[in-house]
Design a protein around this nucleic acid. Structure first.
Ligand SMILES: [Mn+2]
Ligand SMILES: [Mn+2]
Ligand SMILES: [Mn+2]
Ligand SMILES: [Mn+2]
Lengths: 219, 219
DNA sequence: ATATTTTGTTAGATGAATCTAACTTTATAG
DNA sequence: CTATAAAGTTAGATTCATCTAACAAAATAT
């Protein structure tokens, strides 16, 4: 099996590769807060294990095997988060750090039991898709709230860059997944939005917030 | 904080010290399946951290600090086992390996939530006491079934040397914690016992089994 | 009491994961 | 196009946890 360390590299590669197509050693180094030479030698090691395609001075790419292994780690992470929220009553802002550790447990029966108890969920508490048992992700096509226009009615489906601080901020605004948001005005100057949802009739969301909220158009 | 590795040494020292008073480097080496020189240098390291009293050629003893830290790891282990059995429907023979990993999580809120959901249990699924939040253990006084005599009625309160195989064996005999056992005959030759419990009127338990069952006298 | 066995210690090596310093290649800006 | 900056690589050191081989002390057996 892969070490705790290797698993964290695979996961970081996977997540970065989904925002962009390929990953530079530099990005990976910054994401993991590990210096470049260390990343470099780990990439060679993962290449030996056929988890990463490595060529000098070229961007990094996970192999199919690498994607699968990464997907399985992410599955454990997201199942854990869902379990903590659904079955142990944690807030969505409290679960990431715990899942960051639990994702490295080698305990298939435990994760299978969690999945079963949760009814085989397909998204985690932040709206991110949970990879299936083969590590495959079923990608959704959401758009950023900040890309929507006045008059649109949307459903909040996921949050990105979901730091605990940001999630706590959303709590104070009663912005949970599933909330229907009507966009009343989009300010051209700063991209801030005047919206209504739940019983609130005039809440303002900054562009910074709106671009971290992923939504689906409704009606 | 302490590393995964250090925690395992502390836990092993603690458990060995409870069977005997002190622990030899040799026993510890065998228990952990780690060679003596490795154990030796780890003991010096733990001594530097004031977790172990170390003197050349003398038996090993945990300091008060060491006992506390070990107790806290064991607390996490046993709370986890109890949670897995009570809340996730695992069998008592399925939980040790998972707990062996989860005991190393640094997630106080998670373990506190488990304790709360379980109603602050004082024993784990195998009848072993769960240390409190300060790492202290409330020792019970049980005796081995093998030390009881014909005519005694006892309650099964804990199992020792509870390997998964042994626990599965107990499952086949319907021997769960709390079962009331009447001792009908003790064979002088091999120490085997003829007992009755539940609706069974004449089950035989070998000495090997009886000395792994801890009981309390009833009536 | 001495010899043998067991236990404990020291010394030195290894592999994993990390770092810093120095160098090379590629990208970017005048 | 060169010059500079950024990104990537190589070399060598460090820390942790492990090992084997050799040696020393303590326990045990004759
Ligand atoms: Mn997360
Ligand atoms: Mn992690
Ligand atoms: Mn256990
Ligand atoms: Mn452990």
């Amino acid at each position: 099996m892969h070490s705790y360390t290797e698993e964290n590299y695979l996961k970081a590669l996977f997540n970065l590769a989904n925002e962009k197509g390929e990953v530079s050693a530099n990005e990976l180094s910054k994401k993991l807060e590990i210096k470049m030479p260390t990343v470099n030698s780990m990439m060679k090691k993962l290449a030996d294990k056929k988890l990463v395609h490595y060529e000098s001075y070229k961007p990094l790419r996970l192999t199919e095997k690498g994607k699968k292994e990464a997907g399985l780690v992410i599955r454990k992470h997201r199942l854990t988060e869902m379990y903590l929220v659904q079955k142990m009553d944690f807030g969505w802002e409290q679960v990431h750090e715990i899942a960051e550790q639990m994702e490295h447990l080698h305990a298939p029966d435990f994760f299978e039991k969690m999945a079963e108890m949760l009814g085989y969920p397909t998204i985690d508490p932040h709206g991110s898709p949970i990879p299936d048992k083969s590590g495959k992700i079923d990608w959704r096509h959401y758009e950023k709230l900040s890309d929507c226009k006045a008059g649109d009615t949307v459903k909040l489906s996921a949050v990105i860059n979901g730091t605990d601080e940001f999630l706590k901020f959303l709590n104070t605004r009663e912005l949970q997944l599933g909330v229907k948001i009507k966009i009343k005005i989009v300010e051209p100057f700063d991209g801030s939005m005047l919206v209504s949802y739940n019983k609130k009739t005039g809440e303002t969301l900054s562009h910074t917030v709106a671009e971290r909220l992923l939504v689906e158009l409704v009606k």
